[in-house]
Design a protein around this nucleic acid. Structure first.
Length: 467
RNA sequence: GUCCCCUUCGUCUAGCCCGGCCCAGGACACCGCCCUUUCACGGCGGCGACACCGGUUCAAAUCCGGUAGGGGACGCCA
């Protein structure tokens, strides 16, 4: 096991969204690549907004994608005493101080500063304050070192430097005694001995403050890698308005976890011209230094293509299992019908998602109750009747066959009767499925079974004569 | 407003660090043709980009400077 220790630290205020999933993926990839440790930590210091349901939803999303963690999940809410202790330490060392300014005063000053074109940082009212108002509520602020600059070498973006003047005295403990985010991350990452912090680039501005905190606390500063954001089609931050953002929603829409993983890993990262990556390949080829510096737009079309690819090349048995819930939600039971694996096999090249596959599988489990009139109208009634009669007869005398075997039978029927394939295939397809968009007829007959196929052909013939 | 970051086809990106092989390659989408038993799959081809302006150089997508545009942060949220 190498010394590399990374972590994914979501806040449980909602489900696992694709942006978070990609951050988790990059962390996981780096850990797996160098035999490091991947830690899951739940950032629930905001007791108000954190929920158990969100934690479950996040774990569920990670499990579905196969992003397994080596340690955790740890909860920041379990560490309050630890944070308290560190606040004490800073206070005693004079590296932090109590601030009695009220939230209202702060808001007013911030607003005024903005209006006057000044930077809205804390004005330091309580920084050098000597008195301690009796019983007045206070927050604890970090005494940010001024002068010089704070810089770091980001693994993705390169060197980033901030003038120390830009960094103000951030609050590390609220009036109610709870610690704040920027303080907790530092302590947790330090205590968990995280070597590489991979997170969204909306955190780059927090990084210099955190570095000052590491230094004030005497902890080694980890390496940082800030991953660019994922945008919607209008280049605005990806949100529900652009479609689904929840990982689990993608599962429910019929996407395969390997397809989403493959899509996500290629968003912002690439390896030459490669597009398809198995789990093993991404672990082998991933390099955090190759992650792009600019934001990328989430493109559902490409996800569809990848999903179609994995459906086409996937194991039919597994796909059949995964398809089951999509069938049940349509009220379909596969108990009295063709084997689902056979059905799946005929549909693998024709579906981009499991939802689409479920729709296309419907006719296998319930015989058509009506037929595509327009398609039928392309043939005259006598021809249709002749085709149905001859095909039904021929199938009755033939034994069970493979899809290719049935196709041969249809070819024989054509040559024996002087018909062209479309003149036979289309009518039969309509009789079997009700419409024209369906797998090859040999495939359908094989999956449906010879007897059921004959029944449906006869039913179509009866329907015609009944008109 | 201040600070930080970003900028190659509509989209994801290769190339950029180590200038010439790039009048820029791949993929998705789109268009056309082929295959064909419908729908698909597949094959072939097409459309399509170095944000802009200067500089350095024999030579710049690649190096330097500036401009514009976009994004992020500025919270007793994370």
């Amino acid at each position: 096991m190498s010394a590399v220790r990374v972590r994914f630290a979501p806040s449980p205020t909602g489900y696992l969204h694709v942006g978070g999933a990609r951050t988790a993926l990059f962390n996981w990839l780096l850990a797996r690549k160098c035999g490091g440790t991947f830690i899951l930590r739940i950032e629930d210091t905001d007791v108000e907004r954190s929920t158990r349901e969100s934690v479950d939803a996040i774990l569920q999303g990670m499990e579905w994608l196969g992003l397994d963690w080596d340690e955790g999940p740890f909860y920041q809410s379990d560490n309050f005493p630890l944070y308290k202790e560190h606040v004490r330490k800073l206070l005693d060392a004079g590296k932090a101080y109590k601030c009695y300014c009220t939230a209202e005063e702060l808001d007013a000053r911030r607003e005024l500063a903005m209006k006057e074109g000044r930077k809205p940082k804390y004005d330091g009212t309580c920084r050098e304050r000597g008195d301690a108002p009796e019983g007045a509520p206070y927050v604890v602020r970090f005494r940010a070192p001024q002068g010089g600059e704070v810089a770091f070498d980001d693994l993705i973006k390169g060197r980033i430097a901030f003038p120390a003047e830009e960094l103000d005295d951030l609050i590390i403990q609220r009036t109610d005694g709870t610690p704040t985010y920027n303080f907790c991350v530092v302590i947790d990452d330090a205590v968990m001995r995280i070597t590489t912090v991979i997170r969204g680039d909306d955190h780059v501005n927090n990084t210099p403050r955190q570095i000052q905190l590491y230094q004030a606390l005497g902890y080694p500063v980890p390496q940082f890698a800030h991953v660019p954001m994922i945008l919607g089609s209008d280049k605005a931050r990806l949100s529900k308005r652009h479609g689904a953002t929840s990982v689990i929603a993608y599962r429910d829409m019929g996407y395969l976890p390997e397809a989403l993983m493959n899509y996500l890993v290629r968003l912002g990262w690439s390896h030459g011209d490669d597009e398809i990556f198995s789990r093993e390949e991404m672990i082998e080829k991933f390099d955090i230094g190759n992650v792009g510096r600019s934001a990328s737009v989430f493109n559902p079309e490409k996800l569809n293509w990848l999903n179609a690819h994995y459906i086409k090349t996937g194991d039919p048995e597994r796909l059949a299992d995964l398809l089951l819930p999509h069938l049940s939600s349509r009220g379909v039971s596969t108990l009295n019908g063709p084997r689902l694996v056979d059905v799946v096999t005929t549909l693998q090249e024709r579906a981009q998602t499991l939802e689409e596959m479920a729709d296309r599988a419907l006719f296998y489990y319930s015989a058509p109750t009506s037929y595509d009139e327009a398609a039928l109208a392309k043939f005259d009634k006598d021809h249709l009747t002749a085709v149905y009669t001859i095909v039904a007869g021929k199938l009755s005398t033939a034994g069970e066959a493979s899809a290719a075997g049935y196709d041969q039978i249809f070819k024989d029927i054509c040559t024996e009767n002087g018909w062209k394939m479309p003149q036979v295939g289309q009518p039969v397809r309509i009789a079997l499925s009700g419409g024209t968009q369906a797998p090859g007829i040999g495939e359908i007959v094989q999956a449906l079974g010879r007897d059921e196929s004959i029944r449906r052909i006869l039913a179509a013939a009866a329907f015609l004569s009944g008109e």
